[in-house]
Design a protein around this nucleic acid. Sequence first.
DNA 1: ACCAGCGGAGTGGTCCGACCACTACCGCTC
DNA 2: GAGCGGTAGTGGTCGGACCACTCCGCTGGT
Lengths: 233, 233
Amino acid sequence: MDETAPQKGTVTQRAMEQIKAMIAEGRLEPGQRLPTERDLAVQLGLSRSSMREAIRALTVLGVLEARHGSGIYVTQLEAGDLLETFGVVADLSRGPRLVELLEVRRVLESTATALAAARISPDQLAEVEKHLTAMNTTDDPEEILAHDLAFHREIAAAAGNDTMAAILEGLSSRTFRARVWRGYEEEGAFDRTRREHAAIHRALVAHDPEAARAAAAAHVGEVEQWLRTQLGS
Amino acid sequence: MDETAPQKGTVTQRAMEQIKAMIAEGRLEPGQRLPTERDLAVQLGLSRSSMREAIRALTVLGVLEARHGSGIYVTQLEAGDLLETFGVVADLSRGPRLVELLEVRRVLESTATALAAARISPDQLAEVEKHLTAMNTTDDPEEILAHDLAFHREIAAAAGNDTMAAILEGLSSRTFRARVWRGYEEEGAFDRTRREHAAIHRALVAHDPEAARAAAAAHVGEVEQWLRTQLGS
DNA sequence: ACCAGCGGAGTGGTCCGACCACTACCGCTC
DNA sequence: GAGCGGTAGTGGTCGGACCACTCCGCTGGT
């Protein structure tokens, strides 16, 4: 007659599901503070050790945030919080899957750039231009890469779809770009990159979505094709 | 003089980074078995409790897999393994972000369907048709939803980009579809859905990528627009 | 020689209790 | 009233103990 029920999986997994359910059902609001680890363990009927594993897991998923000495809080549950783990995929992918990731990025990046062309504000455009010129007036590869990332990040932000922007952010994770671009840029692709960025910028200024889509697709497609040939050898 | 170094973040986070680095550097191959929790804890210089938290975290990220009584193994690191967490995003998203997710899905689904139209094999096409007819010959909403999911899953698989298919799988997670479609289908959208699926199928049979892209975009776009109006009220 | 069954060694899963590191807040001092 | 110091409470870490499960070799029979 025991009501403690089904015993699916480990106690830790069950605890994770319960907390996720509490959030999904609205019993826990974004930003809200949870009971202490010790109290939660008692409430859900497990040890603090197992409770901590559940909390840690939800923390890396971007659902919870633990502040040492303060407490455990629900994140804002925004796209950026939850999609941070996307970077792990990019970091651990090799070979053919890198091409697949670039294909996904090409599709999303071209769409985001097209949306940005239609919606971008003068302020946002100025920010894009800032990174564009900064990228063209230095020779430090590290700095170029940083402004390159920022250039595309600003455009993605201007597209108005935070989720899409967060995914693109993960697909452009620092280690990912560093690995792929290291070889790409060594082959003197800087000039081509500059021209492609300029084309994207022109389309944004003209508020021409189709031109922006084409320019962005070509931009990512270049890297994609280069990587395809690399894998062949 | 101590070489143990910088002390960034918690010991658990450090352990996670070390294991990820071992995999990224190729010192741990997919499918390979790791040392025991106890040995790992000693090697990385932390307690078993903290080590377990790191392992649990990497487990939910789809990087490691723990088999009770057997050992800890590196997953195959395929797209499906690493992108399983994507479903959490869909499960915990509400309001405007649901629309954003559908927008991302529309972009990817239309591209995947276009790719599938060009590449799909007779066997794969037969599988798609199986779910299409099954979907049209039953009235059980649960069964319809299941075949609907399988219909799109087969198409995504035929597109030949496992990463894209895995992302779409996450965007179509059971709870996500159930929540959105519950209301959508109640408004008598079954017939429209049937027609749209038929259009997608025709384009696949004709191996017409552009028609397939348009049909898929319209299909997802319908739900997207419906959801937009719902949020307005 | 074969194989079904048993058992033990080894592994992840869970729990406990203690202590450390840090934060927040209250009350005291000036 | 502002600044300061202490203290209660929080998450972070540790070590050890025991449980549940898997795997494999041994045993005994056929």
